[in-house]
Nucleic acid binder design. Structure first.
Lengths: 562, 562
DNA sequence: TCCCACACGTGACCC
DNA sequence: TGGGTCACGTGTGGG
């Protein structure tokens, strides 16, 4: 149902995101990504996907797998440093892949699906894109657009998403994991881990290099699909290389992926740094890059792992594959974890003797719980990160890649959307034809979609400010009424809170024949009434804004007076 | 400017959130809170605040202060266990402080600012509420509603929001911050830190106990204001104690507050647990509660700290005061940190030998960085949490209190909004004249971004809408009423929106002799009413919760029935 | 008991 | 160098 409509996209998201359980949500996200990956990489293992369970299990599997895979893969390349040429190359791949993808998406008609995928990817990729955005100087890519598109995409894939989410939601996860595994195997071969490698290999230049390194990359690629095209670009596009700094993250491939963003960024950075210099093995690079080789290695591993995880989520399929290949999972994971910790030895954590202390999971610290807990924690973290990225992907304008910024941007964006909806509502109702915006000045602003509405006309802002600010308490009642089209109105009222004010205000509005359709009223120290949309009863005569205002002011005054 | 208007709050948020830099954002958030605090606590050090930098500094200051204060306070009580009675008391304090504050705010006419603050607080407080929501069983609080309300608020302030975004985006934030500070200073003087303490002391029972403990509280209190009432409640209201579980968070006063949510929940829980048993010193309590006294202590401290931090953010002013009072800050902080770490000694962390190992900040591990870093990390964490709560507050329907869930819900919600926008767009275009559509069609498409879906068939759209919205709508009216102490009640109501519902509900509440002091009401698809605090008129007979519920249900039903 | 979620402190990295 | 960010591993509490 949902899926069909464009709304579908939304639906999915919703289901996945909010609607269902977290896990489910996570799944959904993943799915989306996976879908994307599938599209791009093609190789999604749909058969598996079919199972609802698949997803869930997938997810978990993936996560675990991640670690495992990552560790496995990582260890392999990270330690061994088998990569041929650039980390960068690898990094780029992913990043480019994403970007490229975006372009492709646009380009490709197939798009519909792609779109969806894209979104997913974008989510992951988003980060990259956002990254791009970050760099003012080098926005070469349409991150924003990408993002938006992604969002859209997500939205666009109502079906996909929906189906996934729904199916996935509940049973999905758990059951899924196995599925994932299977899937992974089943998958075309985007391949994560070893398989993934293959995928990359297919890409071309990257392939080789990637292989060892790519382990992670694949994940990022999640998206093997991306790689193909991407790979080329990467190599081709020196620009990225050229500008390591800002872009770096992106460059590397943060963009691509799903989760690399942060991780990738860092990883990429590392790689670049080390990589460029070294351009050799990962390990070498790592070592080179910094003082503590061991530390570096660990770091890399971890990052990779995470990346993989991300990938998993992002492109579950791919990851799935990897996992499958790895298959070591459980034990390996632990081991990996242990190894990591042990290896890393950061300080306190390293300790972690708990985890692995020695080699096994139970070492001694306490119960041996640590290992499990550790994994759980990792999963949790990853999940959270994925969500975060997802959120990022959904938010068109991303100021910074910071987690906090992401949240902040999301909040802002959310508000913006609400505002828009409001405006649209008013417009809709009021202006039949005027569609355009008569009413809503705001509409235009956001409409444009400009993700960056921000710039909206200052004037508007001013208005708002004036209105908004007034606030405070002691203050005089402040009422603003805007007529939208037709009989719709927007009301903003602010004054001190007084007992009975709420009721009297409601009465006043009612007396005016206004039906409050969308509003938010808050009482605390003060009283704030924001009616986004209210309509005058059809029957009644038109009430003018100033009338409304007068009535409300009176109401506020009466009470306010006290 | 901004500061003045109620919008301020929003402004801040928006600005803080999306618009500006993270720091700023953070600041903004903080401000909101701070503002609140200022209102409540008043004692913000405004002088400093004036500087734009001030904000930043404030922020940092506060945060640091938090820690310091907290640590100071904490260390004092935590380690020494100087606190008179309960940790709970302490914990409560903070929490309560928040709640109380709200109350006070409400009480305080100064409110206008408060209002703003409130929202902010609410955001933070929301978390608690959401927490409640999480519990299916115990939704007593209007978390959702709160959230929704928040959202609404945000939304509601179309102007504000817009303006904010716009204005805020760039300069706004920075500029604002100073304002806030100023305001805070201007505030009545609730009092933060030391001052705050006083405030608490004023409260009564809590006062004494709190004092030592309160240090942190003030922060929370940001809001000393709350404390007064809260403190009482806490002590008085055994119920909370009685129902530690689900309610806990709320009970404690999560609602109030600002950030307690997660923190508070836990903290509260801890306190309750320990507190109840012990009811003595914090340290004692801690020790009692669990095996590792030291660990407990640390925990408590930490929590408190965080709480404080939250407070800081929430009610920066307060914190500011505290800080001021403390003044120890820098060094103290370090010390505190060190102490904490040292004291706690949980395991790995404890170690923290880095931090304090011994007593001072620099111990030895590496550079002595740790301490600083530690603080930074704490701040960061806090900031992130605040944002998260903020986000939560904005998202109307929160399934779980999980971080991941919050993100997921937010994403979903976001998608929903996009979908809606899309639909609206299509409708707009199509409906009015089809002509516009084309172009606009684009709109929808791009809007939604979903390139494809673009225009989903209206019909579909309709379906979707119906479906999407559903959440609210379809539902049966849901009303939850909790009696607080005395004549205070908490009400959470959620049902489909119906014309006149708002008024009828208000009438119903009025008829019950309830004075709505703190509430958030949001209307969109559904109708959500969250009354954080309402008091029955002194005159009237006591109204029982079930009566209220019945009346509200009736009201909802009448309208709801449709 | 386990699992989950969280907060914490730390090391590493970047700017 | 210093602040900020991040991931990690751990400890802990709640269910």
């Amino acid at each position: 149902m949902l899926s069909k409509v464009n709304g579908v996209v939304w639906m999915e998201e919703e289901g996945g995101v909010g609607g269902a359980e977290e896990d489910e949500d996570a799944v959904s996200w993943t799915r989306g990504q996976s879908a994307v990956g599938g599209e791009g990489g093609g190789g999604i293992v749909m058969g598996d996907g079919k199972d609802e369970l698949g997803l869930a299990s997938f997810k978990s599997m993936l996560e675990d797998d991640w670690y495992l895979a990552a560790s496995a893969g990582t260890s392999g390349h990270g330690d061994g440093g088998g990569h041929p040429s650039a980390h960068q190359g690898g990094g780029f791949e992913s990043l480019h892949g994403h970007h490229i993808r975006h372009h492709q998406q646009e380009i490709n008609p197939s798009a519909a699906e792609t779109m969806l995928l894209q979104p997913v990817d974008s989510s992951s990729s988003c980060s990259p894109s956002s990254v791009f955005n970050l760099d003012p100087s080098q926005p070469f890519f349409p991150q924003k657009s990408a993002l938006s598109s992604l969002l859209n995409v997500v939205c666009s894939n109502p079906f996909d998403a929906v189906s996934f989410d729904l199916s996935c939601d509940a049973s999905g996860f758990l059951a899924n994991s196995p599925m994932l595994m299977n899937r992974g195997g089943g998958a075309a071969g985007v391949g994560g881990g070893g398989s993934g490698m293959l995928g990359f290999g297919g890409l071309g230049p990257c392939g080789p290099m990637v292989t060892s390194d790519l382990m992670p990359v694949p994940d990022n690629g999640g998206g093997a699909s991306y790689n193909a095209t991407v790979g080329l670009e990467v190599f081709e596009s020196s620009p990225f290389l050229n500008r390591p700094k800002v872009i770096r993250p992106l460059e590397i491939f943060p963009p691509v992926g799903a989760q690399p963003t942060l991780f990738q960024k860092r990883a990429a950075a590392l790689r670049q740094n080390s990589g460029r210099n070294l351009g050799c093995l990962d390990s070498a690079g790592a070592a080179v890059s910094h003082g503590s080789a061991s530390a570096m290695e660990e770091h890399e591993k971890r990052k990779r792992v995470e990346e993989e995880d991300d990938m998993d989520e992002a492109s579950i399929d791919g990851s799935g594959l990897n996992y499958d290949s790895d298959d070591l999972t459980g034990d390996n994971l632990k081991m990996d974890g242990g190894a990591k910790t042990g290896g890393g030895g950061s300080g306190s954590n390293a300790n972690s003797a708990v985890t692995g202390g020695g080699g096994g999971d139970h070492k001694g610290k306490k119960k041996g719980l640590p290992a499990k807990n550790l994994m759980a924690e990792r999963r949790r973290r990853k999940k959270l990160n994925d969500r975060l990225y997802m959120l990022r992907s959904v938010v068109p304008k991303i100021t910074k890649m910071d987690r906090a910024s992401i949240l902040g941007d999301a909040i802002e964006y959310l508000k913006e959307l609400l505002q828009r909806i409001n405006d649209l509502h008013s417009e809709l109702e009021s202006t039949p034809s005027g569609s355009s915006l008569p009413g809503s000045a705001a509409a235009p602003s956001f409409h444009p979609l400009t993700p960056t509405p921000p710039t909206l006309p200052c004037r508007v802002k001013e208005e708002l400010l004036s209105s908004s600010l007034p606030s405070p308490n002691s203050q005089l009642p402040r009422v603003e009424v805007r007529e939208r089209e037709g009989r719709a109105v927007n009301i903003h009222m602010f004054c001190s809170r007084r007992p009975g004010l709420l009721l009297s205000t409601m009465r006043a509005l009612d007396s005016l024949g206004l039906d409050i359709q969308q509003a938010v009223i808050s009482c605390f120290n003060g009283f704030a009434l924001d009616v986004f949309r209210a309509e005058q009863c059809k029957e009644g005569p038109d009430v003018r804004a100033d009338e409304i205002k007068a009535v409300l002011l009176h109401s506020a005054a009466c009470h306010g007076s006290m």
